[in-house]
């Protein structure tokens, strides 16, 4: 990568300097790092296995409430499994699903957006018409229909949620490419004899990365949320997988008598999504000066 910046700060230092000014974004990044660490080291951190059954300790309330047991900090579920351990193991699932969704939708959306923005005319109108159609279907509806077609399961949920996310990337990349295409460096590359693919991938695309990174961060939070929603509707990960949305669905029949069983999985989803949105806002301000007011 070539950098022709004459400033004292390296690009990364410069980016960090403006990112760190946003206190919310730094807090979000800290929370996110915390969850990523939990996800990576879950076997070391979890007190028990996510599927270990403790007989006689069914629906035990959390340790910090009356009737709780310090051995099960966030209580146990209806078959006597430790909720904290399940949440810890579920972290890598939720983050992993979100990451997979971003990879799938980012790659396919970027390719389609590049093609639409670069070639315009027929290619553009075909791709954009398809995008319009997908966007006409409410995202949750499309995801559940696709999940129902593919059959329930974590991997299929990734596909379903990815399809829903693709139009966002297509529209973003297309708009970016259309703006970049008119720049002098693209004309220069043409004159130099560079082919279409080369111009798209090594000239235009690197100049569009900042907004794409921002979109990917927001896409990660949306992916986690939508995959959890599918889990909740019974179309995502299947029990006894300790996926957070699936845990919520399992716990729902007991929500009146054992509210902690629903509280903590949902709270985990909220915290991760919130952290990602904070980081996304911070990235947008730091990477994309055009959006800064």
């Amino acid at each position: 990568m070539e950098t022709n910046q004459q400033k004292e700060l390296s690009p990364f230092r410069e980016f960090w300097h403006s990112f760190a000014q946003n206190r919310g974004a730094v807090i979000g990044l800290a929370v996110l790092t915390f969850f990523i660490a939990i996800g990576i080291f879950s076997p070391l951190l979890a007190p028990y296995s996510p599927s270990q059954l403790f007989e006689g300790t069914y629906r035990l309330p959390p340790a910090f409430t009356s009737g709780g047991n310090i051995k099960f900090f966030l209580g146990t579920d209806d078959v006597g499994r430790d909720i904290l351990s399940r949440l810890i193991y579920g972290t890598s699932l939720s983050l992993g699903v979100g990451l997979m969704v971003v990879v799938v939708s980012l790659i396919s959306g970027t390719i389609l957006g590049l093609l639409a923005g670069y070639f315009e005319k027929h290619v553009d109108s075909t791709i954009m018409r398809l995008t319009d159609i997908i966007m006409a279907l409410p995202s949750t509806l499309l995801a559940i229909v696709v999940a129902a077609i593919l059959g329930p399961g974590l991997v299929n949920a990734v596909w379903a949620v990815s399809i829903v996310a693709i139009p966002n990337y297509i529209r973003l990349v297309r708009a970016l490419v259309m703006a970049e295409k008119k720049r002098a460096y693209v004309t220069a590359a043409h004159a130099y004899g560079a082919g279409h693919i080369r111009i798209m991938l090594s000239e235009i695309l690197p100049n569009c990365t900042a907004p794409i990174i921002v979109q990917a961060t927001l896409g990660l939070s949306e992916g986690i949320l939508n995959a959890a929603a599918l889990g909740f509707l019974g179309l995502g990960a299947q029990p006894p997988t300790p996926e957070w949305g699936t845990m919520l669905a399992d716990a729902r029949p007991f929500m009146e008598s054992s509210p902690w069983m629903v509280t903590f999985p949902g709270l985990s989803i909220l915290l991760v999504v919130l952290a990602l949105n904070l980081v996304g806002d911070g990235l947008r301000d730091a990477l994309d000066p055009r959006l800064k007011k």
Binding site: G24, S221, L225, A228, A229, F232, G245, L248, R252, M255, V262, T263, P265, G266, L267, I269, L270, V273, L274, L276, N277, L278, D281
Partner: peptide, 15 residues
């Protein structure tokens, strides 16, 4: 606002 924006509504409804 940001908390509301990040809310998993299927959980929020149950809460």
């Amino acid at each position: 606002g940001l908390v509301g924006y990040s809310m998993p509504i299927f959980w929020w409804g149950l809460m």
